[in-house]
């Protein structure tokens, strides 16, 4: 029997699993074009362009035609604010956690210090501890510290420390740093010390060596660490849920809030846009990375 032969079982399973992965997404996208406002069943596409015209719960005609719900979305102030919050949090936490994580990875690789084994082990904490435990841990920490600060310094109500963008960003940095560190570490493991020695041999001091040789050569690792941090931040629900406050609602939190109330195709439109943006971003980054590592 030829072991290279592909078994029909594997093939059938593969097709089924891919269907399982994609049918929900397909339905999600399809319903974003739903004519039905209640969004319970799919009532067909909105085909006519023109001023908004409804018939019961059906949208018959819209200035945007089938893209009615997408246009509707742009007029939704809450969504726009949430989108801005989400991106702000993702960008800031990615930049900070990439810098900290890269430095941590280099420190762990190059230097020996007393708590190194402990530090290395602690990188696995966000993997082996359920997110909800981390979420309430961070929440408890913030609320205790904030209460202490607010009462000790007797801050006026408008200057009191509260949960908000700041706390969300800090907690996103906290859970991203270990992932960035692990990714950069993986890249560092294959890094020949001779490159840095060569740079120093040619007259570059430690700082110049880092900027001109170490960092450029680590860049693919740093970039994929940053990409991971960015997607983790965008995707995060649980930790944001516990550390968010008024004015720092992110898209996942907003959607979660909607799901417990009424669901219009607007949510589907939002999801479709989300998937599209993430796909484009990932595609662009992968192209960049491929060029980087020819």
């Amino acid at each position: 029997m030829n072991p290279h032969r592909r078994s029909p079982f594997v093939l059938v399973m593969t097709v089924l699993v891919f269907l399982f992965l994609y049918v929900p997404i397909f339905v999600l996208v399809l319903y974003s074009f739903n004519a039905s406002r209640t969004n319970v069943t799919f009532e067909g596409f909105i085909t006519a362009f023109g001023p908004l015209k409804t018939q019961g719960s059906l949208v018959v005609q819209s200035p945007c035609g089938p893209f009615h719900w997408f246009c509707d979305l742009t007029r939704n102030q809450e969504v726009m604010t949430a989108a801005r919050n989400t991106l702000t949090i993702a960008f800031v936490s990615t930049i900070v956690s990439t810098i900290i994580g890269t430095m941590a990875a280099i420190a762990l690789q190059r230097h020996d210090f007393k708590i190194k084994p402990f530090a290395q082990l602690s990188l696995y904490i966000p993997i082996v501890i359920p997110e909800i435990v981390m979420g309430i841990g961070i929440l408890t920490l913030f609320s205790q510290v904030f209460t202490w600060v607010n009462t000790t310094f007797n801050l006026p109500p408008d200057a009191r420390l509260t949960l908000g963008m700041g706390t969300v960003i800090v907690s996103h940095i906290a859970f991203s740093v270990p992932f960035v560190t692990l990714v950069v570490q993986a890249r560092l493991q294959g890094f020949d010390k001779a490159y840095e020695e060569a740079a120093m041999d040619l007259g570059a001091n430690e700082l110049v060596t880092f900027w001109r040789v170490t960092l450029p050569m680590l860049l693919p690792g740093v970039l994929s660490g940053a990409l991971l941090a960015f997607t983790l931040s965008l995707d995060d629900f649980v930790i944001t849920f516990f550390t968010t406050g008024p004015g720092s609602t992110t898209l996942p939190i907003y959607v979660y809030g909607l799901l417990r109330r009424i669901i219009t195709p607007q949510v589907n439109a939002l999801s479709t846009v989300w998937i599209l943006i993430v796909l484009i971003a990932v595609f662009v980054i992968q192209r960049m990375e491929n060029r980087e590592s020819i």
Binding site: D192, A194, A198, D201, L202, N205, M217
Partner: peptide, 19 residues
Amino acid sequence: PPFQRKVNTVFQSYALFQH
């Protein structure tokens, strides 16, 4: 340090900067 010495090295792995 190496960058203050008047010697230069050819490495076994060449250590050419790939970028």
